[in-house]
Amino acid sequence: MSHEAAPRNSAPAAPCAGPSWRDPALRAVTGPTLRPGGFALTERAVALAGLLPGWPVLDVGAGGGASVARLRSRHGARAVGLDPDPGQLDAPVQPGLPLMRAAAGALPVRAGSQRLVLCECVLSLVPDPAAALGEFARVLTPGGVLALADLCLPPGAPRVEGTGGIETPEEPGEQAPPSCATGARTVAEVAALVRAAGLDPFAVEDHGALARELAARLAFGGAAPACPARRGYFLLLARKPGGPT
């Protein structure tokens, strides 16, 4: 992926943000998943994780529960969703879904209780990703799997700083970032954070084509400017040591 040079004698370009989940244009393009790849990439993640019926699954940043509903109905998982934004939770994709308001950095979940933690296009929105990954590791059972998908930067690209977070969107003076593009890191940086949390990555896949496809569809629909080729998309799976493999 190439970098675009800034025009001469001009101010630095504003950080690439892209549309937020509140943007009707994004919802029109992605449906309830609100992310590149939609359910297809979710299915890829759970296949690599070896998801079985009855597994306890935690979807962090679940929004209205689209993935929770799918994992429960299609795979027989005991899936539960968490999201810090009441605006998301107030509009579930179907009534009766087990959704709770909670931040990624402080999960109200018992240690060692989850066989799979799903985190899709969310980690780059979290103010302290290291703390969130530590929580993911804490709640996973030994041998449990973290499935992480997100936007990413190419190797060596500088990360946008000072993007805030979505953990406490109602606090005075704090605003949610427009999208997960603003807090994107390189895949190597994310993998290092995952290892520091005590998890062992065992699969990393490049799905940048999905991000480019979404950007093109948004642009075609006249949505807010989407990220250029500087942003890719990846899927990473990591296992908590111990237990069955």
Rank of each mutant, 00 (worst) to 15 (best):
F136Q: 02
L148T: 04
V93L: 05
A103T: 13
A224D: 13
V145R: 05
P127Y: 12
S179M: 07
A238G: 04
S113V: 00
G156D: 01
P178K: 08
R217T: 01
G87W: 02
G221M: 14
R8L: 15
E189P: 01
D85W: 12
R35W: 06
A238I: 02
G96P: 12
P56A: 12
T42E: 04
T42D: 07
G63N: 09
A25W: 01
R217M: 03
G38D: 06
R138Q: 07
A17M: 06
V57H: 00
G65R: 02
G208D: 12
P15T: 10
D23F: 08
A209P: 03
P172T: 10
P158L: 13
G50C: 04
G222A: 07
L116E: 05
P108M: 04
S113F: 00
A223G: 13
A106V: 03
G143A: 05
A149Q: 14
A157Q: 14
L218E: 02
V122F: 03
A130M: 05
A219P: 03
R35Q: 08
G134K: 02
L193S: 08
V145Q: 00
V93T: 10
A137Y: 00
C119M: 15
K240I: 00
A66E: 12
P154R: 13
V46K: 03
G105F: 00
Q88T: 07
P15V: 13
A130S: 13
F136P: 02
V93M: 10
P201K: 02
R27Y: 04
Q94C: 14
E43Y: 02
R70Q: 12
A176Q: 13
A11G: 05
A5Y: 08
V117M: 02
D206A: 03
D90F: 11
A28E: 13
L107D: 03
T168C: 11
V139M: 00
A25M: 06
R239G: 01
T182C: 14
T245A: 15
P36Y: 04
A49Q: 01
G81F: 09
R22I: 09
P155N: 08
P95D: 14
